[in-house]
Amino acid sequence: MTEEDSDSVYTDSQTGEERSLPVIQLCGLVEELSYGNSGLKRETEMFEKYYAKLEMRDQPSWISDAKLSAAEFAQLKGRHKSKSRPGTERLVGLTVDQKLDLVKKELEDTKDEIRHVRANAERDLQHHEAIIEEAEIRWTEVQKAVHEFEKDILKTISKKKGSILATQKVMKYLEDMNHRRDNMKDKLRLKNVSLKVQRKKMLLQLRQKEEVGEALHEVDFQQLNIENSQFLEMIEAKNKELIQLKLASGNTLQVLSTYKNKLHQAMEMYNNLDKEILLRSEMLEKIQKETVQVEQDRAKAEALNRKLRKEMAEFRVPPVMMYVREKILNRDLENTIKMWERKVEIAEMSLKGYRKTWNRMKTTNEQLQDLPAGK
Results as ranks from 00 to 15, higher is better:
218 E>F: 04
238 K>V: 03
211 E>I: 13
247 L>R: 06
313 A>D: 07
237 A>T: 09
291 T>K: 11
279 L>D: 10
324 V>M: 04
320 V>F: 06
265 Q>A: 10
278 L>D: 08
325 R>L: 06
236 E>C: 03
268 E>M: 09
257 S>N: 11
267 M>P: 00
262 K>L: 01
299 A>S: 11
241 E>P: 00
236 E>H: 15
241 E>I: 01
241 E>D: 13
228 N>E: 09
216 L>Q: 09
292 V>H: 10
221 F>E: 02
260 K>G: 04
212 V>K: 07
324 V>A: 05
239 N>M: 05
313 A>T: 05
314 E>Y: 05
271 N>V: 12
244 Q>H: 01
249 S>P: 01
270 Y>V: 03
287 I>E: 08
225 N>Y: 07
242 L>A: 11
277 I>C: 13
313 A>E: 07
253 L>G: 00
221 F>D: 03
315 F>K: 12
284 L>E: 12
224 L>N: 02
229 S>Y: 05
300 K>L: 14
258 T>G: 15
280 R>S: 03
259 Y>D: 04
286 K>N: 15
217 H>D: 06
307 K>C: 05
212 V>T: 14
252 T>V: 14
279 L>S: 09
282 E>P: 01
291 T>Y: 12
215 A>R: 14
242 L>H: 02
256 L>M: 13
297 D>P: 01
260 K>C: 07
290 E>R: 02
217 H>M: 05
268 E>N: 15
219 V>R: 13
295 E>G: 15
262 K>F: 00
280 R>N: 05
266 A>G: 01
301 A>R: 08
254 Q>N: 08
273 L>Y: 09
281 S>T: 06
287 I>L: 13
248 A>P: 00
280 R>C: 03
211 E>G: 03
256 L>P: 00
291 T>W: 01
258 T>L: 11
235 I>M: 03
309 R>G: 10
255 V>N: 09
